[in-house]
Design a protein around this nucleic acid. Structure first.
Length: 544
RNA sequence: GGCUGGGUAGCUCAGUGGCAGAGCAAACGGCUCAUAAUCGUUAGGUCGGCAGUUCGAAUCUGCCCCCAGCCA
């Protein structure tokens, strides 16, 4: 296919039971930045995100609205895609677990696990939460009205006995411990890895991978005697039940890489370089999923990054609490790139962070309108006024040296998934450039030049050249976060922006942002505020 | 209950034994290229609490309090 390094990354797939909140898409925005970074530095990149659409709960929610499950998830998936478009998300594939090839992948995984002796028929009996599945008794809360699931106290629990297929997770404890020992950084941040290691050492129980009687799910491909549930007419025998939603959901990561129908593609993309997930589903991704892959004889993803949650006044943002932000509202106020920057700068990518509308507006104004937007504007304005719009050549002065170190540190932070710190590093340089203006005082140099001081005139050209260059390299470096603003900045600076909408097909970013990488000369374009300043009380949306 | 992460300026956080820091917000001053911008200065701390180790503790030890998480 290509000899460029390849990079395959995924987000968790979102449960398609509602419209998405910013706290859900935050993960996708972060992954999108990482994907764009890899595309722009020249990697052969594949970015997978999508929706998780099966489960009894989805079927129930659909019925409450008088809809067939398929129509229900289609409507919700459309809302996800609309919100992701608004945020400039650039997946190479938007996968839906209802896609036909995903059924093939799930079936193949079950066949492999069965052939390996890792799937067996058993009986499960216990309290069942329609929203979450079976719950351990020790996990339930009890009050005068009975026992309840701690996460869904209003939902009535059912005592169920089911004949289910089980995955022999207990057989993988030692192999998982060994894998963790051999791959010290495969789950990060480290405290997330340690949590799971502790969990594994506490002993693993087999888990159920099928649901008896549930119809909205991937048909289970095996009959109780192990024979195929596929009937002569190509349909699946409903008596076999369906695949448990968590078991099939994880498999999306290999479906999206070509498993099992396109072996050449799968060979190219798997194992994934990075799974980006939330802390609530760590166990599924770093205990269940690796065991499933081991059972199927497939390599494990190279890295799982576990991010935190968005909090509002200390509480987790969620649709059920009603304290979430609608991404469409935020984009309407801050713009697409303003939202991308602000949410990833304001929220740490490795832990929970408290956010608010005020904190977003403050961050947008301080960093985007004032610091960077105004730096670009003043640099262009002075070039226009003092040099008639000619692009002066940069020098190899102090800013050049600082920039080299800045970009290196920025890339390191980005590749370590510390996106907020990457932006902090980059914006330190924005501050350096603003200080440089005050130190050099181009307006003073311009007056001296006007009075015939040729030394001041030459110095002014160098200062303006350095400022335009600083704006150029900052804009291109920040392009994974703010692709449209970067392109607009390039136009204003009079330089080409040769990347496709998803960040592909352009020059290697590291070369492009080297100081003085471009031929000097040419003219700047028209200046226009890149990020208009917001009034503090502008457009605050009603609580969603 | 066990374990993990956190508690530092109004806010968000950095700081692993040597004079308590940054950004934002605030006040004041400078500058005039700029989106009321920007640059500088100032103010603002019982470093969750108590005890201990040490010449010296935000940092190490013990106990305790609070927030969040993991323990199917």
């Amino acid at each position: 296919m290509t000899d460029r390094p390849r990079f395959y990354l995924t987000t968790a797939i979102a449960y398609a039971n509602n419209r998405p909140g910013l706290h859900t898409l935050y993960e996708v925005v972060g992954a999108d930045v990482i994907a764009r970074w890899h595309r722009m530095i020249g990697h052969d990149t594949r970015f997978l995100t999508g929706t998780d659409e099966y489960s009894v709960n989805i079927a129930t929610a659909a019925a409450e609205q008088g809809l067939e499950p398929r129509a229900f998830v289609d409507a919700n998936v459309a809302r996800f895609q609309q919100a992701e478009d608004a945020l400039g998300i650039s997946p190479d594939r938007f996968i839906r677990t209802t896609d036909p090839d995903h059924t093939d992948a799930a079936h193949e995984m079950i066949r492999r696990a069965y052939a390996n002796g890792d799937i067996y028929l058993g009986t499960y009996e216990g309290w069942y939460c329609p929203n979450e599945g079976f719950r351990a008794t020790s996990d339930l809360v009890e009050d005068e009205s009975g026992v309840h699931c701690p996460n869904h106290p209003d939902v009535e629990l059912q005592w169920l006995t089911e004949n289910n297929w089980f995955f022999r997770l207990s057989a993988y404890q030692e192999r998982l411990e060994q894998y963790y020992a051999d791959h010290a950084e495969w789950v990060a941040p480290e405290f997330r890895k340690n949590e799971m290691l502790g969990f594994i050492r506490g002993g693993l129980e087999d888990f159920s991978v099928s649901r008896e009687g549930a119809s909205w799910g991937i048909p289970f491909p095996l009959m109780p005697d192990g024979s195929s549930a596929r009937r002569d007419d190509g349909t699946w025998d409903p008596a076999a039940g369906t695949v448990y939603v968590w078991y099939d959901a994880l498999i999306n990561y290999i479906t999206g890489a070509g498993f099992p129908n396109d072996p050449e593609m799968f060979e190219h993309w798997w194992p994934a370089d990075l799974h980006v997930i939330g802390k609530d589903i760590n166990r599924f991704h770093t205990v269940f999923w690796p065991a499933m892959l081991m059972s199927a004889g497939l390599p494990l993803p190279k890295k799982v990054w576990v991010h935190g949650w968005l909090l509002a006044q200390g509480e987790r943002m969620s649709k059920s609490r009603g304290n979430f932000l609608d991404p469409i509202d935020v984009v309407a106020a801050l713009g697409r790139d303003g939202t991308r920057y602000t949410v990833l700068r304001e929220v740490a990518f490795d832990r929970d962070s408290d956010v608010s509308w005020d904190s977003f507006v403050r961050r947008y104004n301080a960093d985007l309108a004032n610091d960077f937007g105004n730096l670009l504007n003043r640099s262009l304005s002075m070039s226009k006024r003092y040099r008639g719009g000619e692009r002066s050549a940069p020098t190899g002065g102090d800013l050049a040296a600082t920039w080299a170190a800045t970009f290196e540190a920025y890339g390191r932070k980005l590749e370590a998934c510390l996106l907020h710190e990457a932006l902090e590093v980059l914006w330190d340089f924005v501050g350096e450039a603003n200080k440089f203006v005050e130190a050099e005082q181009p307006w003073t140099l311009a007056k001296a030049a006007k009075n015939g001081d040729t030394g001041a005139d030459a110095r002014l050209s160098g200062v303006l050249g350095d400022l335009l260059e600083a704006c150029r390299v900052i804009a291109f470096a920040a392009a994974p976060f703010m692709p449209e603003a970067a392109a607009r900045a390039a136009t204003q600076l009079g330089v080409a922006y040769d990347y496709a909408d998803d960040g592909n097909d352009g020059p290697p970013l590291r070369e492009l942002v080297a100081w003085s990488a471009l031929e000097p000369g040419g003219s700047i374009g028209a200046a226009e505020p890149l990020f208009p300043r917001l009034e503090t009380d502008d457009a605050e949306p009603d609580p969603a």
